[in-house]
């Protein structure tokens, strides 16, 4: 069935048109094709309005494409499924549930019994270093803590692919760097396939195996770069700066 078994996600000539309030249509995503290898860490960078979040939402099954398809393991994605998780930028935790209940909510929807889902949830809460706060409520946590919980919640659903839509976009610089480090650890532990959308070139260079550079209006793939640096990467080495600089120049086009 699957012609590229090593490609877990295949995006084929994906386009998305939006209609504005005035009745005009504009092309947010224009014929984007992209293969995501299993266990890889892909970052999509691009200016705002390049449709990068839209691609992610379509891949998560939250939105329909205007044309083209997203395939997961050879099957077309048309609605959300447990195998593909999505982490939002902010305000995604259910404020009426504790950290533990938030993280256990995916398995709860799936009908997993209480003991098992709490045990699994605690495992992932521990993984993101939030175990001391498992009974806290989202409003009692800082932005960085909330994103850790959001990541744990996505992981507790045991997805194959983890899509992340600017997960650290609302955080201060220091917290952001800390969470990038932790995300890499989580990735190394779980070996999920991660696709992370960001507008920070630095973040992409720090995290990714492969960087997809997009251009805007209409959203197209401008270039795909492989990153060949050992992890953990140091921002101090010349290679890091050179690649960052190169991508920034590409984005100007």
């Amino acid at each position: 069935m699957n012609s590229h078994p090593e490609q877990i996600i295949a995006i084929n000539r994906l386009s998305k048109e939006f209609t504005t309030g005035a009745g005009n249509t504009f092309l947010a995503v224009d014929s984007v094709s992209l293969q995501i290898p299993r266990n890889s860490f892909t970052c999509i960078v691009g200016p705002s309005g390049c449709g990068k979040s839209t691609i992610l939402r379509i891949a998560a099954g939250l939105e329909k494409s205007s044309s083209g398809t997203v395939q997961y393991n050879g099957n077309q994605v048309s609605k959300p499924c447990a195998e593909i998780g999505l982490v939002f930028q902010e305000y995604s935790l259910f404020p009426w549930l504790s950290v533990l209940d938030n993280v256990a909510s995916g398995p709860e929807f799936a009908g997993v019994d209480k003991d098992k889902r709490y045990k699994d949830a605690e495992h992932y809460i521990r993984m993101v270093n939030m175990i001391d706060f498992k009974d806290a409520y989202p409003h009692e946590l800082s932005g960085g803590m909330r994103q850790r919980v959001a990541i744990a919640r996505a992981l507790a659903n045991e997805p194959d692919v983890l899509l992340m839509d600017e997960p650290f976009g609302a955080l201060d610089a220091h917290t952001r760097i800390l969470l990038q480090k932790e995300l890499l650890k989580v990735w190394e532990m779980t070996r999920k396939t991660i696709v992370l959308v960001t507008h920070s070139v630095d973040e992409a260079v720090y995290l990714a195996d492969r960087i997809v550079i997009m251009s805007s209006r209409p959203g197209r793939i401008h270039k795909v770069l492989d990153v060949d640096m050992d992890r953990p990467r140091s921002r101090a080495i010349p290679e890091f700066g050179k690649l960052t600089d190169h991508i920034l120049k590409e984005l100007e086009h």
């Binding site: 998560a60 099954g61 939250l62 959300p80 499924c81 447990a82 593909i84 998780g85 999505l86 939002f88 902010e90 305000y91 995604s92 935790l93 259910f94 909510s105 995916g106 929807f109 799936a110 919640r153 996505a154 659903n157």
Partner: peptide
């Protein structure tokens, strides 16, 4: 209701009733 809550629940596998 914040749309992100509904999207989050969908992505986590909630059906319409849930």
């Amino acid at each position: 209701v914040n749309k992100t809550f509904i999207d989050s629940a969908r992505v986590l596998g909630a059906n319409e009733r849930q």
